[in-house]
């Protein structure tokens, strides 16, 4: 069952994922489209990979700032940037 925020200003739970997804994309300090937002019981899980540790911290800061009542779990990794060890042969 969906419960609305007591103050009437928080998005209903069913819209929370969409609200966070758009926040991460449309806030130009973040501009991340590759983060998956999943609602789990009483928290949201943020998954994905980003280009720097600073971006991961910014994502968490922004979500906590906008949705202070929502417990957030972050599982965001850094994308590796090593040189390739294999090539693909196309014949």
């Amino acid at each position: 069952m969906t419960q609305r925020g007591a103050a009437g200003t928080d998005p209903p739970d069913d819209y929370l994922e969409a609200a966070i997804q758009r926040l991460l994309t449309e806030c130009t300090e973040i501009a991340e489209q590759g983060i998956t937002v999943t609602r789990r019981d009483h928290s949201v899980l943020l998954c994905g990979e980003v280009e720097s540790a600073r971006r991961r911290e910014e994502i968490l800061r922004l979500v906590v700032e906008h949705f202070p009542e929502v417990p957030v779990t972050v599982d965001i990794g850094l994308i590796r940037t090593q040189a390739p060890t294999e090539v693909e042969e196309l014949r």
């Binding site: 590796r80 390739p84 090539v87 693909e88 196309l90």
Partner: peptide, 10 residues
């Protein structure tokens, strides 16, 4: 998941 991929076209 690496800096770049390399393709060899024969």
């Amino acid at each position: 998941k690496q800096a770049y991929s390399v393709f060899h076209l024969h």
